[in-house]
């Protein structure tokens, strides 16, 4: 699905694919940011083919305007902002990861309160839109893709299109330090194969990995990493 964001921004998908991709966008923060950037690039292309609009067009449009009722803004319950933020606010599949850089320990906490989800969404937005961000994207063995975006000591790990883990198992995230030691990052919660986690206090030289582990997680990986980023 990820590789369709360019085709989507260029309007090069057919109607069915377009709808499918739009549903996917609700659960894919990285794609949403990418589509937005691609749309800005496409707008630059559009400006280069500008040509004087016929004079009569203006009168016709203004006449239409005078007799056309406007649609109201969206209902207040909808959160304004990128659609992935709206998707995240209600999602339980959000993890806050605090890496104690000084001690080299990683403490993970899961928060489900809406306001904390909002903080996470803000943190994610910061990372995903930072001009300094560093991105890594890889296919995951077994299917799907994983994306890591790091900026200013924060990181977002986002997985999409991941097949369901075997019964009684789940996907566990790992932070791999420069010396190769691995620390658990907790389980990555997926909804329909997609999920994201936000981490703070991440040293820029770590990499992240995913393994399949028994539900509840392991102290150290018991299977080969399906993907390693960074």
């Amino acid at each position: 699905m990820h590789d369709l964001s360019a085709a989507y921004a260029l309007n090069a998908l057919d109607e069915v694919e377009r709808r499918r991709f739009e549903r996917h966008l609700d659960d894919c923060p990285a794609c949403t940011v990418e589509v937005r950037e691609f749309a800005e690039a496409a707008a630059s292309l559009a400006e280069r083919v500008a040509e004087p609009a016929p004079g009569a067009l203006r009168e016709r449009v203004m006449a239409d305007v005078a007799r056309t009722r406007q649609v109201p803004s969206r209902p207040a319950r909808s959160v304004r902002g990128p659609s992935w933020r709206r998707a995240l606010t209600g999602a339980a599949a959000v993890l806050l990861v605090t890496a104690g850089a000084a001690l080299g320990t990683v403490a993970w906490q899961q928060h489900q309160a809406a306001e904390q989800a909002q903080e996470l969404a803000d943190g994610m937005a910061r990372v995903l839109t930072s001009p300094e961000r560093v991105e890594a994207r890889h296919t995951v063995a077994g299917g799907g893709t994983a994306t890591m975006v790091m900026a200013e000591g924060d990181a977002v790990l986002s997985a999409a299109g991941i097949p369901a883990a075997p019964h009684g198992h789940g996907y566990q995230m790992w932070v791999i330090a420069a010396d190769g030691s691995m620390q658990s990052g907790g389980m990555l919660k997926l909804a329909d194969g997609d999920g994201s986690a936000f981490m703070t206090g991440v040293s820029p030289d770590v990499s992240l990995a995913l393994t399949i582990e028994p539900e509840g997680g392991s102290d150290q990986p018991t299977t080969e990493p399906l993907v390693q980023l960074g």
């Binding site: 800005e40 559009a46 239409d64 969206r74």
Partner: peptide, 30 residues
């Protein structure tokens, strides 16, 4: 003509947080 009328009709739904005005209008047009 349709696009420009649509800009008038749905301007209240334009959301700056999702992208610039020029990108919104270019997307509508395209």
């Amino acid at each position: 003509q349709e696009v420009l009328l649509e800009v008038w009709r749905s301007a209240a739904r334009f959301d700056e947080a999702r992208g610039s005005a020029r990108a919104w209008i270019a997307t509508l047009t395209h």
